[in-house]
């Protein structure tokens, strides 16, 4: 697998990361070196093997759905009328 410039820009857009024109060529070469190393995984026969999301068995723990942190502490940022302020979505 080789990343093209177009795919790199698409991934960067999805990642919300800006890459300058000067960075593009260097990034492309470096990332393709890494992806080439990732491609080694295709050699391994994993038919019938389950994925390990964790290295040890984890028993899910759930707590009661009750707020334990004050809103002002949880929303560390700009507040207005008790709400969290952010940029426009329009």
């Amino acid at each position: 697998m080789k990343l093209s410039k177009e795919l790199l820009f698409d991934v960067a857009r999805l990642s919300r990361v800006n890459i300058s024109n000067e960075e593009t060529d260097q990034f492309l070469d470096e990332l393709n070196d890494v992806v080439k190393a990732f491609d080694l995984l295709s050699e391994v026969d994993t038919k019938g093997v389950s994925p390990s999301l964790h290295p040890v068995k984890i028993t899910p723990k759930l707590r009661e759905d009750k707020p334990e942190v004050k809103k002002k502490t949880a929303l560390f940022g700009e507040m207005e009328d008790g709400y969290f302020v952010g940029p426009s979505l329009k």
Partner: peptide, 15 residues
């Protein structure tokens, strides 16, 4: 599937 899921399956074999 080719990267993330594959890597998690390979992890099982490595463990």
């Amino acid at each position: 599937s080719a990267y993330y899921i594959k890597a998690l399956k390979v992890r099982t074999l490595l463990i």
